[in-house]
Design a protein around this nucleic acid. Structure first.
Lengths: 110, 110
DNA sequence: TTATATACTAACTAAAAGGATAGTATGTAG
DNA sequence: CTACATACTATCCTTTTAGTTAGTATATAA
């Protein structure tokens, strides 16, 4: 049988593919970088990422949640209050983000 | 003025975005991993990646070439012979691929 | 009673990425 | 003269991803 890599029911033949699939998404790296500094409410994330729409922000957060990278904590209050934080698994992604940051930084201009 | 990161005329506000944009593409990581072992002819890559079509393989190779990650050497013979190899810049991506490989490997199942 | 704040959801559109299939160019071997 | 090998290119289609705009729920404050 062929070896495979699984994260919440999605299967990949190659570990790199699994990783890319998990942390890709136009806004996921920024979201993660922000959450590395501590938990954030939905509205805070909105302000930190002014160019992402609600629909997309929510979607990326849900995917990260499904993959066990972030947790979503809902407070039963009105108006609603929801906090997002990074999980332990999520923290293990940091070396990758750092490596990507280092590589990309070599292309800085003025 | 805002800082930015540029790779062949594409601008990014964040180094991670530049990196993702450069190495993303469904087949780029595999292509790169294969080229790390040494140059390959087009037909060899085709055999190594049996699930990618010509159109897409060519496209990914061209993008990698444009970004200075691989070089394309054409021999003026018939039938054609073209060799792809990784550049020095391309080799610097290895730590990222390795980090992604390590992370994804934690999700291995039987 | 009305407005407010917050975190969404719905319906739709647009753009990007990837895939399928078929075809092209041409020196050389037979 | 014909077939062959190789590395593509051209069309068209499907899927995936992202973006736009508008709307919802509801305890509380005024």
């Amino acid at each position: 049988m062929m070896e495979s890599f699984k994260i919440n029911d999605k299967s990949f033949a190659c570990p790199v593919d699994l990783t890319l699939n998990t942390i890709m998404g136009k806004w996921k790296p920024v979201i993660l970088n922000n959450l590395m500094d501590g938990k954030k409410r939905y509205g805070e994330l909105q302000k930190l990422l002014p160019n992402v729409t609600d629909r997309v922000l929510t979607k990326q957060l849900r995917e990260l949640e499904t993959d066990g990278i972030v947790t979503r904590k809902v407070y039963p209050v009105v108006p609603p209050k929801v906090e997002y934080s990074i999980t332990d698994r999520g923290r293990t992604i940091k070396p990758i983000l750092d490596a990507m940051c280092d590589w990309g930084s070599k292309f800085k201009v003025d």
